[in-house]
Amino acid sequence: MRMRDTSSNRQMIGTLIFILIGPILWALQLTLIYGAQSSLCAFEVGIGANGGNVLAAGTVIGASVLCMALAVAAFVMPGASYRLITGASSPDDQWPFLTSVMRILAGLSLLAMLYAALGAVLLPACAQLR
């Protein structure tokens, strides 16, 4: 079976999105954690001693776990992810290329997400540096 993207835009655009699953999740994680943490700190919601903030740290970790779990899922089940996004069955022509690019990107994104989430474990959520 060959992939036919000639008649379907969903498949053309979907394939591009499929490749980008990892980085898209990374962008989502950054938006969620930066947005939540800076607004909670700006409005001093949930601030504890020494600039700690259980609520902010919790949101950061929760959002990170969610995004990372999705990235892992895509990594483990590329075929199912492809079908979900494009609504078409996984092609065999370029499949090795598409999956490996998707997987390596997902792996890199997982690493980047982990880096960002670690900060929340190590630092008080709302303290200033100086």
Partner: peptide
């Protein structure tokens, strides 16, 4: 003068982009 934790998010991405 942004909170330290925000900085780490971006510092983390700065490390990631080097890979």
């Amino acid at each position: 003068g942004i909170p330290a934790l925000s900085l780490t998010f971006f510092s983390a991405a700065s490390m990631a982009v080097a890979i």
